[in-house]
């Protein structure tokens, strides 16, 4: 007991392709777990299977002791699992602020009647949503861009915006799929530091998927390394970094 998320022997097959083949891991309260692996090793598929984008072929997923194995992504939000995507999934025709308010959707208890008649509750909810969204935008450093359209933001800022949208949902577990992809090393460092800061301030548990092993070394509690859908190493960052199987997976040796 005591783990926030427990994944047991998870398998995700697409026809004959074993994209995830029996992976187990767990995330404790307030931990940052890094999942690393070379391109095409199944990191993203693993997360998609965990967060209900795909329906896993086999295995169990427990969150807070509750079985969430075949729950869909939209139903996990209210439990406290939120995520970002490797390829941005933002709402391009909305402003930055509106994108974050989308994340506030479930917390907003205005009903249809309120919306049509603009009741007091409606106005309060709208005001609160805007304020909360602004708070999260400040956290990720996008407050100055609130009224810009997403398509006008540079790529790195869009990545931050996705984090803000996830944060406004007040998750217990935040899953970040390659939050530094496409960033230069300075930006990537900033991004990882931001995650670390969020974790320290609020005790938020985080799963960080990352291609670049070095970035994670000083910021995560434990690392899971996978290759070809299977676990090849786990443990403290320093241990995994020097693991011969991990090194060979990254360098492509056999």
């Amino acid at each position: 007991m005591g783990y926030l998320l427990e994944v047991r022997d998870l398998k995700m097959y697409f026809g004959g392709v074993h994209a995830v083949d029996g992976i187990s891991f767990e995330v404790g309260q307030g931990e940052i777990i890094g999942i690393i692996g070379p391109n095409g090793s199944g990191k993203t598929t693993l997360i998609n299977a965990v967060t209900g984008v795909y329906n896993p072929t086999a295995g169990t997923i427990l969150f807070d002791g509750m079985d969430i194995t075949s729950k869909k992504m939209e139903n996990l939000v209210s439990l406290g699992i939120c995520r970002t995507f490797q390829n941005l999934k933002l709402h391009k025709a909305l402003t930055v602020l509106q994108n974050v308010i989308v994340g506030e959707h479930l917390a907003n208890d205005s009903n249809f009647f309120d919306a049509v008649f603009r009741t007091k509750r409606f106005r309060q909810n709208e005001k609160r949503a805007r304020e909360l969204a602004m708070t999260e935008l400040e956290k990720v450093g996008l407050a100055g861009n609130a009224s810009d359209f997403v398509s006008e933001l540079p790529y790195g800022m869009q990545k931050k915006l996705e984090i803000a949208r996830a944060l406004v949902m007040k998750p217990k577990l935040l899953i970040l799929d390659e939050p530094t992809a496409g960033m230069n090393s300075v930006e990537a460092k900033e991004q990882i530091d931001l995650v670390k800061k969020l974790n320290q301030e609020t005790g938020l548990s985080v799963i960080l998927i990352e291609h670049n092993m070095k970035l994670l070394m000083n910021s995560v509690n434990r690392v899971l390394a996978i290759d070809a859908g299977k676990e090849i190493a786990r443990g403290l960052p320093s241990e995994v970094q020097n693991n011969s199987r991990v090194i060979s997976a990254y360098l492509g040796e056999d």
């Binding site: 992504m73 709402h91 509106q98 959707h105």
Partner: peptide, 16 residues
């Protein structure tokens, strides 16, 4: 609008 612009992104915010 969230669904229009990106269904998956909308789902990740708990929208069905």
């Amino acid at each position: 609008q969230a669904v229009r612009d990106d269904e998956l992104g909308a789902r990740s915010a708990g929208i069905k």
